[in-house]
Amino acid sequence: MAQLMTIARPYAEAVFALSSEAKNLAVWSDELANLATISQDVAMEAMIKNPAYSADQIVSVFTEVMGGNLTVEGKNLLTAMAANKRLGALSAVFEVFETLKAEAEKRVRATVISARKTTVEQKKILSAALNAKFDAEVEITYEEDTSLVGGIKIKVGDWAIDGSALAQLKKLGAAIAQ
């Protein structure tokens, strides 16, 4: 996964710079979402991985599927990625682009994983704390994982904090083992 992100980041940053300059982030967001979806199709994945197909043939399939929704710049991105055999990274390009877009719009995505269902009051407290921490509007997705025993885990991009009882028990076990 890390290698895929390393491959995707330069493409996403280039697209982000281009779309920021042209002030069409939403258009690129939609286009990349569609391209990522197409690239994840089982038949398309097989075609991308098959050396019997040329870069031009693969790009023409994307072009045909996208129809009039593919911009000239989008086709240029596909052509460049196909020539470098990087089309398998399209979904990661979309993911990195969306992260860059959210940062530019002062929005941050967070995932909060708790052992039990989070109450409305807890959600308000977490939202306020995360908004203050990141100085942005934080969009929070809440998940439950009963294996945590208690506490929460918070993930925001590369930043993570594990305040779960399970993590604390593992630390205690490691300290005792020493």
Rank of each mutant, 00 (worst) to 15 (best):
N24G: 10
K23W: 04
N69Q: 14
A115M: 08
P10R: 08
W28T: 01
S19M: 05
A128F: 09
D135I: 00
M81N: 06
T111G: 00
L100S: 07
L32Y: 05
A52W: 04
I38R: 07
Q3S: 10
T79W: 02
A115L: 09
F97W: 08
A22F: 03
T79K: 12
V108I: 13
A102G: 08
G68Y: 00
S114D: 03
T141Y: 00
R109W: 00
A174Q: 14
A80M: 11
M1D: 06
E137H: 12
V120Q: 15
L87C: 07
A115Y: 04
K106I: 02
A83C: 00
K23C: 05
V138G: 02
D158I: 05
E143I: 05
S29R: 13
E13R: 15
V65Q: 00
S60E: 14
T71G: 12
L166S: 12
R9C: 02
L90G: 03
L172P: 04
I48Q: 07
I176C: 07
G157Y: 08
A43G: 14
V112Q: 03
V108C: 07
A46L: 14
V138A: 06
N34H: 10
N84S: 11
T119H: 10
S114H: 02
Q122K: 14
V156D: 03
A43L: 15
S114F: 03
R116L: 13
L130E: 05
N24V: 07
K23I: 04
E105M: 09
G157P: 07
V59D: 10
E139I: 12
G88N: 14
A8T: 06
K124P: 08
S147P: 03
G163E: 10
E103I: 09
S20M: 11
E103Y: 03
I152F: 08
V120E: 15
A177F: 10
A128H: 13
Y11T: 08
K117T: 14
R109E: 05
V138S: 05
L130A: 08
E21Q: 14
A36I: 06
M1Q: 08
L169S: 01
T141E: 12
Q168E: 11
V149S: 00
I125W: 03
I48F: 09
V72S: 12
L25A: 06
A89S: 14
V65G: 01
E64L: 10
E64Y: 05
V108G: 02
